[in-house]
Simulated scan of single mutants.
Amino acid sequence: MTAPQDSGRVALVTGASRGIGYGIAEALVARGDRVAITGRNEESLKEAVERLGADRVIGIAGKAHDEAHQAAAVERTVEAFGRLDYLANNAGTNPVFGPIADLDLGVARKVFETNVISALGFAQQAWKAWQKENGGAIVNIASVAGLSASPFVGAYGISKAAMINLTLQLAHELSPGVRVNAIAPAVVKTKFAQALYEGREEEVTGAYPLGRLGQPEDVGGAAEFLLSERSGWVTGQTLVVDGGIFLNAGVG
């Protein structure tokens, strides 16, 4: 396969050693971007870099909610590639399954720290290091759980609703130089979402008008569009990528 022509653009994708984050990084590398990816597990990150292409990709291990890691990831990206045009905030967690009436507040804080505050931290760092003077674009990975009630994953849903509003705030404040949008996927076949379909995939899939669950490349393609000049007049939007599941809202 012929290597893509270098686009001259650079992206940082958080939580990208697998799943949706990997799908985003893969789409950006395929079009010729140089990409830095982050993840908690150094070994998994190293493997992802090798698969994506170590000549175009670097990995930076660390915990998304760690401010020192946020700063280091942005700094290393700029050092390695000389710029930072795009940021994809994908790192997230959902460590609990059950009603929020019984939710341990410490767990709720952890969910918000990782899913919302870390995204703000990475955006601040990218803005200061490059985007304030040079422009760029940011994509935040939200969820359809942030657009409606989400039984048993309520803390996650609340955090993703906050992520959608964070997108609006950043889009307003960072314009005109930086565009900020979000993507709200439904169930995507990843290890992260396994509990939502494992053992009953046929039943879950039956609710989707398009007849299948999402794949990481579905979100990767949407992110690639939003992190490009083809979406140059789009900001503050949340793109729902859901296989049509919301078409069934209110039915029955």
Rank of each mutant, 00 (worst) to 15 (best):
P4Q: 03
L12C: 07
I20M: 00
G23A: 04
A25H: 09
R31P: 06
T38F: 00
G39R: 03
R40H: 03
S44L: 13
E47K: 11
A54K: 14
V57E: 04
H65K: 15
D66M: 07
H69M: 10
H69S: 13
F81A: 03
Y86S: 04
A88M: 09
A88E: 09
N89L: 06
N94I: 13
V96G: 12
F97W: 14
A101Q: 14
D104Y: 12
L105V: 13
V107A: 04
V116K: 07
L120E: 09
F122E: 04
F122K: 01
A123C: 07
A126Q: 05
A129P: 02
Q131W: 03
Q131M: 11
K132D: 09
V139E: 04
A142T: 11
A155Y: 04
Y156T: 10
A161S: 06
A161M: 03
I164L: 13
N165H: 13
L174T: 01
P185D: 08
A186G: 05
V188G: 04
K189T: 11
K191H: 14
K191E: 15
A193V: 07
A195M: 14
Y197T: 03
E198R: 13
E198I: 13
R200V: 14
L210Y: 05
E217R: 12
D218H: 13
A223N: 01
L227I: 08
Q237A: 15
L239S: 06
G250I: 00
